[in-house]
Structure formats: C-alpha cells, structure tokens
C-alpha cells in the first residue's frame, strides 16, 4: 500500500503556516495530509480586501494574513477549537479528478466520513462546504455549514485547506467583520446560528480534538487507500518556506 506523508504542525502562527502551506504545494515532498491549530487570526481569501471585509480597529490583537487560494475569510477565535487541515495531492487520477467541484467533494468526503462516524448526518454542499442536515419543520431539511474549504492548483497538484469547527464565537466574528452595525445583535446571531454550526453544539459534548484528528486521519487513509506516515518538511520545502515568509508578513500582501 502506498504511503503518504502526514504532518501535525500543532499551534502555529498562520503567517508561518501559510508559507509552509505554499511550500508544500510548490515543493517536492509528495502527497501530504496535514493539520494545524491557528492562534487568534484572520486569513483573507486571495481576492479579498482587508479594509472592505474587516473592522480593522477591532482586529488589532489578531494576526492577519492572506492565502493563495480564493474564497472568504478564515477566522479563528482564541478558543482554539478548530481543526484546520491541508492536503497537497496530484490531480487527474481516479481518486482525485481534475473537475474542481468533484475534487472538493472527494477531499471534503474525509470530513463528512468523520462526522458520520460521530453519528451526524453530514453532506457535501457544492461548491466547497460540508453541512450538517437536520429535519426542519415537517417539510424539509435545514443545512448548516460546519466546514469551509478552499482550493488552489499548481502544476498538476492541488492544495486544499479547510476547517472543521468544533466551537465558534459568532459574536466575536461579528465584532471583527466589517458588517453594518445591527440594532439587534441577538437577532443577527440567531440568524447566523441557523446557517452555521459546530461539532460541540451538534454533539452536545466536547470531544478531545486529538481523537477527532485521529478519526479524520483514518478516514483519509480509507478514502485514498493509502497509509499515512508522520514526517516533516524536507530541506527544499524549508528553503521555499523561508523565501516565502517575508510575503506572508508583509503589509503589501495583506493589505493590497
């Protein structure tokens, strides 16, 4: 059975993490599945503008950077209950099709399989969301997003990043976003709670994050019919990372 690399970067400064993320994509370390735990931070999508999206005066104690993939803000509060993952894989094979949405679906499947393992009715919502489906009234299904994902591609490989929310501070998110001041904050929070959810809330208990990561690892191995072996960045990746660090720390990149 093929062996792919696994790395758990642990708690990390997201500027360093985004440099390593890009280095894994552009390096020669092979197919890799990795986790990290962001400190209090905001990651902008490639096409977003910080001053439009954020209430910058309220973001003073946040580390802010930008990633190389599109999509929306990835916000991490200081609760630290988020599992962030990255995947670098060659595309255009039977396990990972070239089609963008199909490839999202395949990798998001790892998260879905893990959530199903915990008894939740999880599913994929194109383009790039994992949702929890619950019966709603008598008529239908309500889908709440529990995981957001973003993908980019480079020379026959894809890089997908995503987050699985275990807990989430909606009030704090509203504070840092540049959303118009609402008169009824509770109402706003209630409406977000209808479209967004997190694992602790769905399960009614706080599971150990390491256990959930182990389940995800196992589901990843099953889905891609491979064995994960813990490794680290190689010399070339470290060189690329070092050359990329100034970008992720720069005002020009973050506030362009």
């Amino acid at each position: 059975m093929e062996t792919w690399r696994f790395i758990d970067f642990g708690p990390v400064d997201i500027r360093n993490m985004m440099a390593m993320d890009e280095a894994i994509l552009k390096g020669d370390g092979g197919n890799t599945f990795f986790f990290w735990t962001p400190k209090k931070s905001i990651i902008l999508g490639f096409f977003q503008k910080a001053e439009l999206e954020l209430n910058l005066t309220n973001c003073k104690d946040y580390t802010i950077t930008r990633r190389i993939s599109g999509g929306g803000i990835a916000f991490s509060d200081d609760r630290g209950r988020q599992i962030n993952y990255g995947v670098v894989e060659t595309i255009g094979n039977e396990l990972l099709p070239l089609d963008i949405i199909e490839s999202y679906k395949q990798i998001c499947g790892v998260i879905i399989d893990a959530l199903i393992h915990y008894g939740l009715n999880a599913g994929f919502r194109p383009i790039n969301d994992v949702v929890i489906n619950t019966p709603y009234l008598n008529t239908g299904i309500r889908s709440k997003k529990i995981s957001g994902n973003a993908q980019t591609r480079w020379e026959g490989k894809l890089l997908q990043n995503g987050t699985l929310l275990l807990d989430f501070d909606i009030k704090e998110m509203l504070r840092i976003l540049n959303t118009p001041k609402e008169k009824f904050l509770d109402k706003k929070i209630a409406s977000i709670e209808e479209g967004l959810t997190w694992l602790d809330r769905e399960l009614g208990e706080k599971l150990d994050m390491e256990d959930i990561k182990d389940v995800m690892k196992r589901k990843f191995e099953e889905r891609f019919h491979i064995k994960l072996k813990t490794g680290k960045l190689n010399a070339k990746e470290i060189n690329i990372t070092n050359s990329l660090l100034p970008k992720y720390y720069s005002h020009e990149w973050v506030f362009r």
Partner: peptide, 14 residues
C-alpha cells in the same frame, strides 16, 4: 478593481 470571496484559477489571471 475587483475583490470578493469567489474562486478563480489561476488566481493571477484576475
């Protein structure tokens, strides 16, 4: 100028 939370590959093509 165009900004937003859409996806577009390759990104630089924007």
């Amino acid at each position: 100028e165009i900004s937003g939370d859409f996806f577009l590959f390759p990104e630089e093509a924007l």
